[in-house]
Design a protein around this nucleic acid. Sequence first.
DNA 1: ATTTTGCACCGCATATAATTCGGTAAATTC
DNA 2: GAATTTACCGAATTATATGCGGTGCAAAAT
Lengths: 160, 160
Amino acid sequence: MDNYVKVKFDKIDRKILEILQANAKITNAQLSKDIGLSPAPTLERVKKLEQSGIIKSYHAKLDPEKIGLGVSTFVLVGLVGHNKSNIEAFMKEIDQIPEVIECHHITGTGDFILKIISKDITSYQKLMLEKVSEIKEVDSMQSMVILSTFKDSKVLPIPA
Amino acid sequence: MDNYVKVKFDKIDRKILEILQANAKITNAQLSKDIGLSPAPTLERVKKLEQSGIIKSYHAKLDPEKIGLGVSTFVLVGLVGHNKSNIEAFMKEIDQIPEVIECHHITGTGDFILKIISKDITSYQKLMLEKVSEIKEVDSMQSMVILSTFKDSKVLPIPA
DNA sequence: ATTTTGCACCGCATATAATTCGGTAAATTC
DNA sequence: GAATTTACCGAATTATATGCGGTGCAAAAT
């Protein structure tokens, strides 16, 4: 079990990671120029970063508004009990709701925070009433509607 | 100003968007097989989706733990005043902190919710004390530390 | 109903990019 | 300081993306 162990990577790897986080569509040729190596070892490094699990995957980022997703929210959820089986049952249900794009277990007031995205307020309300609040482990819910998003960076700050 | 208008796209486009959200590294040849078209019109469609702004960008997703980012949090922030200039000043400061990877203006208790990622609790505390709470527009802060993340989907549910 | 027009599609040719490989130099180990 | 490993480069090969001319279908017009 050596998951979640910090893996070694040097300054050049860090630069590669920064670039690929910001723009995954860059060609290997251009990437190699940007980091000051030839294409061959550049590709080798990228493959290693993928194999080691530092790079997990690549994703297209869409414009929510343009695909008809007008309402995004954060929801604080409290569970009726905090035991393991309860939490697992809750997670299993949440996993099946595609509108719930994030689910984190947190400290503080609630137990979980969800990020939910849906078409409009009506469909959001329907989702909450018919899906989320129907999960029997759910006790309390507190919604925060996102009025606007000022920053949504896909670039993590890699520590020195 | 016709930004943020829902753009037209058909069933095939929807499938393309679903696939590229889940896996941006797929080759055009494979994508064309998956959607049942030849490579040429497939590429045409992808380009159109990019040009129309439905697809905004492509990003590599990293494993935070493996690059030494052990602490993620949500922070509810209240401002001293809610006028436009205050909010803009706050945003400007936030924009310069790379550890703040998200910033949303919300309804409810606080005014903003931030997602912050850092190395460990010590560096998180330092960041909050020396950067975030130093922003003069910031009144209150309430942190929720993420204990674990159960779902972090990069695939938005595209409405029918 | 028939013609026209305009897309969206295909196959193929070409261009571009990724990938492999053999050799070399530098760094690390013993 | 010799041996061994690692990282790099350039060039050849392979795979992939891209551009183009032609075709058929569907919608619109007559």
